[in-house]
Structure formats: C-alpha cells, structure tokens
C-alpha cells in the first residue's frame, strides 16, 4: 500500500513538472459554501485551454486561487513542478476588465508599462527598450495609435486589448485570462483570438475563462468543465460532450448559448 502511494505521488510529480500550471485539491470559500471544492487541473503545455461552466461555478475563483490573487482554504499550485512564488516571471494575468476603475488617471502606455514591473523593479529606470516593447505590445493588439489616450476614453473592446497588451509586456510563457471576450465587439474578439493563437503557435500556454460555449471548439484545444468541482477535463473532442455539458450546467443548458452542431459526441 505504501509502495502504491509513493508510486502515484512520483507519477503526479512527473505530470506536474511537465505542466505549466498544475492545481491540486484547490478549495476556496467566500462564506459558508465553497466557491470551488477540491479542484484538480493540469494545464497542457503549448495548448489553449478553456475553463467553462455556469455562472457562479467558480471559474474566476479558480484562476485567482491558482495565481495566488486570493487565498485558498486548501490546495497547491505548481508551475512546471516549481512553487508559484519562484515562477511568477513566467505567468501573465489578464483580470476581468470590470474589476478596475477605468477613470484612474493613467494613459494606455502607462498601463502596458505595468506589465514590466517585475523587470523594472521598484526604481529601475525606464529605458528606450522598455518603451519600444510597450509600443510593440500595443501594436500587436491593434492599439498602437492609442498609446497616449487616457484609459477612460476607450471602448470596452479597446480596454480589453490594452489589458492583453499589458500581459504581452510581461513576456511570459503562460497567459491566464479571465473572460477576455466578455462585452467586447466582434473585431476585438477576432483580434484577441488571433494574438492568443499566435502565442500558442509560438509554444506558449493559454488558459482562459470562456462563457460562449459555441466558440469553444473553434478557439480552444482543451476544456475544463467546472461547476464548483471539475465535471470533466481534457481535449475538446473528448471532454466537451453533450452529456458532460448537461452535467456541468445541471439542466440550465437551455439558458446558455450553445450551438448543438459544435458539441462533439
């Protein structure tokens, strides 16, 4: 029995070392009931993974707990087998757009520069190379002409692109996005997915909370179906099935936007 335990632990260690983001036993509670309960998630390197589930399923909570943005009751996170604290430079995070005050007195370029905080440190001088990188990141999301605008003057889609540019400026290996397509225009959605697919093609890993079931098979390689606990996880072709979706949404699927044609199985 001991032997079996050791073996399974060693196997999991190997799995964790290969995974850009491995979550084990993650439990978070905001009050009496848990928001997520004992969640295991192993993100595949070089893939685009969607976290999908009904409202209140704990999707954002899972991302925040995985990144240490909120403190979990229990659970552990590893990045390529290492503790998160030692691997922060390799992770970029795009929070929900609605989580910040867009009247804050900063310009677009200042927001993108925030992505270089770990490179610049407390007092490191902003040099030409940093400014060039920030401008390049804006260019990649099609916002190069907006560098000196105040952020409050942007539309929702433009704000989301600026957040993505800030994540690009982190020059990370893993990109974690919370509802990147929520409330954005079609052009922005196309621009963002193109950037994310470009990252994936360059060997980076993308993990995003996604609310539009119809586009999951088009946009993503893997899927995690979440409803407080993990209902199913794996490649879209295997995990994104009618049965699993019904289990995750618990009969509420009719209210979710789903295109039957796009559901595998």
């Amino acid at each position: 029995m001991n032997l079996a335990l050791v073996t399974s632990r060693d196997t999991d260690q190997a799995v964790r070392v290969a995974s850009p983001l491995a979550v084990r036993g993650m439990t978070v509670s905001y009050g009496q009931t848990p928001a997520i309960f004992s969640v295991d998630m192993t993100v595949r390197a070089g893939a685009m993974t969607a976290v999908v589930g009904p409202n209140g399923a704990g999707k954002s909570t899972l991302l925040k707990a995985a990144l240490g943005v909120i403190a979990p009751l229990a659970g552990s996170v590893t990045v390529f087998g290492q503790p998160m604290a030692a691997m922060r430079d390799r992770i970029a995070y795009v929070p929900q757009r609605t989580s910040v005050d867009w009247d804050f007195p900063v310009r677009v370029i200042d927001v993108v520069m925030m992505g270089m905080y770990r490179k610049l440190g407390l007092l490191g001088r902003v040099r030409g190379q940093h400014k060039a990188l920030a401008q390049d990141c804006l260019d990649r999301v099609g916002m190069a002409d907006f560098a000196h605008r105040q952020i409050g003057q942007l539309s929702g889609g433009q704000q989301q692109r600026v957040f993505l540019a800030r994540a690009l400026a982190q020059e990370a290996d893993i990109y974690v996005l919370d509802e990147p397509f929520a409330g954005v225009d079609a052009a922005t959605e196309k621009a963002i997915i193109a950037v994310l697919q470009g990252l994936r093609d360059a060997g980076k890993t993308v993990l995003a909370v996604h609310h539009d079931l119809a586009t999951v098979p088009d946009y993503f390689d893997d899927v995690v179906l979440l409803n407080t606990q993990v209902v199913a996880a794996g490649p879209v072709a295997e995990a994104f099935t009618e049965a699993n979706l019904q289990a995750a949404y618990g009969g509420r699927l009719t209210t979710a936007r789903v295109d039957p044609e796009s559901v595998a199985g």
């Binding site: 929070p95 905080y117 407390l122």
Partner: peptide, 22 residues
C-alpha cells in the same frame, strides 16, 4: 517615492498586482 510603482499598480488593479507577486 520608493514604492511609487507598486502603490500605483495595486491602487489601479489589485488583482493584477497580486498576480505579479506584490
């Protein structure tokens, strides 16, 4: 002066700041 950057960052976007390890 010393903590200008983390102060600005965490005031604007606390979640992102925490993600950076601030």
């Amino acid at each position: 002066g010393l903590f200008w950057r983390p102060l600005a960052l965490s005031t604007f976007d606390e979640g992102f700041a925490r993600g950076l390890g601030i």
